Each structure stands twice: as C-alpha cells, then as structure tokens.
Amino acid sequence: MPAEQTESVSAPVTGYRIILPDDWAHIPLRHGTEEAIRSILDEAFSHIAGEASTDRVGPFKRELERRLRGTVARARESGALDLYLPVQSTSGVNVGASFLVSENLLPNRGKETGAHGAPADIAVQLLSSDGVDDADLSSGEIDGALAVRREHIVSADPDRGADLASRRVEYMVSVPNDPDRWFVVAFSTVGGGNPRDELADALVEWFDAVMGTLRWSHG
C-alpha cells in the first residue's frame, strides 16, 4: 500500500510508510495478497529444503501454509488493509505476533463547525465502543497527526483461532486534513505464552518504536 510521497504535504493522504526490520513481512490484503503469501512460503521452504526427508518436511510445509493462510483469512474478514508478520529464516512463519493496518471512516455528519467534536474525544469514543474494559489509554502525535493509543489484554478464544490470551496495542491516528478518516494500527502478541511476560513487554516496546517511524504519503 505505501505510496509515493510528493513535495506538497497539504495534498490528500494516499498512503503511509513505516520502517520494519528484515525479519518482518508485509502482506497487502486487497491487491497482491497471493504473491506475498507465496514469497513468504517460498523463502521459508528454501531454508528447510534438504534438511530432512520429504516425509517429514511435507507435513511441516502443509501446516505452515495452513496457519499462514488462516491468519490472512482472519485479517481479511476484519476488513484490514495490510497485515505484518514476523518471519524466521530457519523455521518459517511465526504468528505469535502480528499487526494489522485498517481505516475507520466516520459517517458524514456535514461540514458545519463542531459537527465532529474534538478529534481526541472521537478517537476515545471509537476505541471504547467495543466494550473493552481495563484498558490503558494515552494520546500524542505521530507525524503531526493526533494519535490515541490503547493497550489491553484479550482472553483466549479457541473458536477464532486464539488458543492463548494476547496483549493488544492499538493506535488510532487522525488522517491529516480529513476529519472523517482515521488510520488504525492494531498489534497483538502472546509473548512467550503469557501476554504480560518479558517477551511481550519487549515486543510492545518494539511496536511503539515502529509506530514512531510512521510517515504519511501524499498525492
């Protein structure tokens, strides 16, 4: 999705850019999805080729592909634009952490002054509308745009493929010059099996750093 940036920052926002390490992969969910999946799987499979017999590698490859495609399918069902996953060069795809990028469009309430309310209030209302309790909320700016951050724990839900509880961090960012559009980035990790363990803490800190690299693309 990331688009070319023009010289004029006052032009409409057409995309975004973030900085990721090489061991994370981007899967666009509207166009180019299958190509991205095949690239990830081919890379993963290339590292295990010849390491074991076909009888042993075959089932592993099939399970790896099944899990990756299941993760992509659930991301698409949520209406997300992009999915980001960590990949491991020696053992394939690690779905113990991921984040989704999506967009939230507010209903058109007219252009009169004050029709939308304060952006921070709108963000909090949107984040609070799904009934999440005991969440930590904070706000700030990302690339000059208002951002509201929410962090909370989500219980395990095996029926939806979530066998373990997870730590969620969500950013809602107001798209510059367009009060109806909100950019939403939702990170999830199970840590080392406990969403409050040291690994989960480190991954949340890493995700916050990634969000600090977000820049808008204009066109």
Rank of each mutant, 00 (worst) to 15 (best):
L68Q: 13
R30W: 04
P12G: 10
A123V: 07
A135K: 00
W216Y: 05
F45N: 15
K111D: 10
A145I: 07
T213V: 00
L137N: 04
V204S: 06
N177R: 11
S102E: 13
D197Y: 12
N108T: 09
V9A: 11
S91L: 15
R62S: 10
P179F: 05
A25R: 13
R67A: 12
M211I: 00
G131T: 02
S98H: 15
V169A: 06
A75P: 10
A49H: 14
Q125G: 04
S128L: 01
S188I: 00
S129A: 06
H26G: 04
R62V: 01
P12L: 01
L199A: 12
K111M: 07
R74L: 14
A165S: 12
G110F: 02
S91Y: 15
R66V: 02
V57C: 03
A209K: 02
R30L: 09
P86H: 05
G193N: 06
S53M: 13
E112V: 03
R167N: 09
N104H: 10
A200P: 11
S89D: 14
V184N: 01
D55I: 06
N108E: 07
P59R: 08
D201R: 13
G32L: 02
G192C: 00
E4V: 08
D82S: 09
Q5M: 03
R149F: 04
P158T: 09
P179W: 01
R38S: 08
E141M: 00
L85G: 05
R168L: 05
V175F: 09
A165M: 04
G161H: 10
A80K: 07
L81C: 08
V173K: 06
A162V: 01
E63V: 05
V210N: 02
L146S: 07
A200Y: 14
S139K: 03
A209I: 01
D159K: 13
R56H: 09
E103M: 08
E35A: 08
E43A: 14
L85C: 06
E35N: 07
G70M: 11
I153E: 14
S155W: 12
A49N: 13
G15S: 13
G161C: 07
E103Q: 10
G70E: 12
S217Q: 09
A147V: 09
T113M: 12
Y84F: 15
A123R: 04
E7Q: 02
I153G: 10
T14V: 14
D159R: 12
A120T: 02
T14W: 12
A165E: 06
E4S: 06
L214R: 07
V124L: 11
F99W: 15
T113R: 14
W216G: 01
G32Q: 04
F207T: 01
T6D: 08
D22E: 15
A156L: 10
P21A: 11
L68V: 11
G140P: 01
F60K: 01
L68T: 09
M1W: 05
N104L: 15
W182C: 01
S138K: 03
G15E: 12
G131K: 00
G79N: 11
L81M: 13
L199K: 11
A200T: 04
P176K: 07
D22W: 13
N104K: 11
